[in-house]
Simulated scan of single mutants.
Amino acid sequence: MRWTVYGERSVYDSPWMDVRLADVELPDGRRFDHHLVRVRPAAGVAAVDGEGRVLLIWRHRFITDQWGWEIPGGRVEPGEDPGEAAARELVEETGYRAGTVRHLLDVRPSPGVHDGVYHIYRADGAERVGAPTDVEAERIEWVPLASVPARAARGEIGSASTLAGLLYLVTAG
């Protein structure tokens, strides 16, 4: 059953997000304003080495007040290719340059609330080229991919996009 959208209006707009109200009608005829958020796309990369490990950052997220492992990533700048954004974020956040980067999947973590898409890439290998320039992590470590399910079960991976990408890698090989 498809909803009818009569229009949208912005309530708050910034470079990070646009909070909007959409005038919608359900198939049963009920019509109301639905809150939604329009966000710019993001991209991240899981750099995997020859030993079955992935390069992750351990960071704190103030919104949820939680620590967790994440793949390096961030916003895709206007006109930027998502794969290039993922590779750029890897260097900025870890000091490692990606090997060959290939697209794995796109994740839309909460399509009932926002239109955000997180493009996830895999890099086969990564070379240390210096210190991170965008320091967001308390630790940067090569973590065994085989440990991902147990880490997720313990709540050590709180990011849905990171979890989706890592579990994809674990199951797809």
Rank of each mutant, 00 (worst) to 15 (best):
M1Q: 05
M1Y: 07
W3A: 08
D13W: 14
S14P: 05
S14V: 09
P15Q: 04
P15H: 02
W16E: 14
W16H: 13
M17P: 01
R20S: 01
L26E: 15
R30S: 15
F32N: 08
V37C: 13
A43L: 08
G44P: 03
G44W: 05
G44V: 08
V45E: 01
D49S: 03
D49I: 00
G50F: 10
G52Y: 00
R53Y: 00
L55G: 04
I57C: 01
T64D: 10
D65F: 02
W67R: 05
P72G: 08
G74L: 01
V76H: 00
E77H: 10
P82C: 05
E84T: 06
A85L: 05
A87L: 02
E92C: 01
E93P: 03
G95S: 12
Y96L: 07
Y96T: 03
V101A: 06
V101S: 05
H103R: 13
S110D: 12
G112R: 13
V113W: 11
Y118P: 00
Y121C: 06
R122K: 12
R122N: 00
A126E: 05
V129E: 03
V129C: 06
E136Y: 07
E136T: 13
E138G: 12
I140S: 10
V143G: 04
P144Y: 10
L145R: 08
V148W: 04
E156Q: 15
E156T: 09
I157Y: 01
G158H: 11
S159N: 15
A164Q: 10
L167Y: 10
T171P: 00
A172K: 11
